[in-house]
Design a protein around this nucleic acid. Structure first.
Lengths: 155, 155
DNA sequence: GGGCAATTGCTGATGTATCAACAACTTTGC
DNA sequence: GCAAAGTTGTTGATACATCAGCAATTGCCC
């Protein structure tokens, strides 16, 4: 740890614990999903698309729901289209836009991945934290994000 | 969200709140560091190397301190060597191994990035959580990681 | 001391994430 | 109507992360 006014022992403990925790939890989730043939990124596309049903979704709205910017979305959707999970069609009412639909394979991929994913979330997160901790986490998230928010919204 | 026994409202709230929170905090940290010309990955290499001083470090030990596998390390160190932040030399006592040293530019990069990074961590994390929350976070991290650990250690 | 397993580090392929720049279209304001 | 400004989506470059596989060396064990 470098020189200029580094963190105290206590501060360091919390920060390092949190960093390690958040990375390992994310990695664990990614690994579990990968076992079902989808990535976390895939899942974030598949889930809202399945809810949207036959109407499909505009990338813009997918972007809002996932908190992604347009570029990330375009790359992700291109890869998913190549794998046959989604289709992209010209939007009727806006010549700039497209509409994304799930294919049957996309729906199948989500059906295959969901139960295991949900089970994993319960087992490795929800069931390990007390109601008091749940409340704390929600409040904490709001507090921290309120401070971050200004610069952290996708453009 | 999909059909098979999805999460309850309460569960969903905690999980989504946590996911959003952890991603935005990580993104915010990354953005702050990027403003100083280093990435989070760079920082994780630079900080322990600075502590090691003239002795340098073996990639194996860097890997342990960062929790990375050998491959990720090799790629990262290659990029950092190309940018002139570190050097790689043959280890004296082990013909398989190498020793990584900070260059003067590497030390300068860390000096330039540290104060802002530490300040950011205080401002956007440490100062926003109460002592009780700190304790909870540390305990919660241990509990969750104890369950994850088996499969989540680098090979 | 000879063979075999483990350690150490690298590479190439693929997927993921961000940035800057662009093209096409729509909206707004006059 | 029309020019300026904003929206929507794409691309290419670069960095980051993971996986599988390789090569060299070391250490172990008989």
């Amino acid at each position: 740890m470098p020189k200029p006014r580094w963190l105290s022992k206590d501060e360091e403990e919390v920060w390092f614990a949190y960093i390690l925790f958040s990375r390992q939890l994310a990695a664990g989730m990614e690994r579990q999903l990968a076992g079902s043939g989808v990535s976390g990124a895939d899942y974030q596309m598949l889930a809202p698309l399945a809810e949207a049903g036959a109407a499909g979704m505009r990338p813009r709205d997918l972007g809002h729901s996932a908190g992604w910017d347009r570029s990330r979305l375009a790359h992700q959707l291109r890869r998913m289209e190549q794998r046959g999970l989604v289709t992209r069609e010209q939007a009727e009412d806006d010549a700039r836009g497209i509409v994304v639909h799930l294919t049957e394979a996309g729906r199948a991929a989500l059906r295959a991945a969901s139960p295991g994913h949900i089970e994993w979330v319960r087992e490795n997160f929800l069931e390990l934290i007390t109601p008091a901790e749940r409340r704390m986490l929600v409040e904490l998230s709001e507090r921290v994000m309120a401070k971050l928010e200004p610069e952290s919204r996708p453009r």
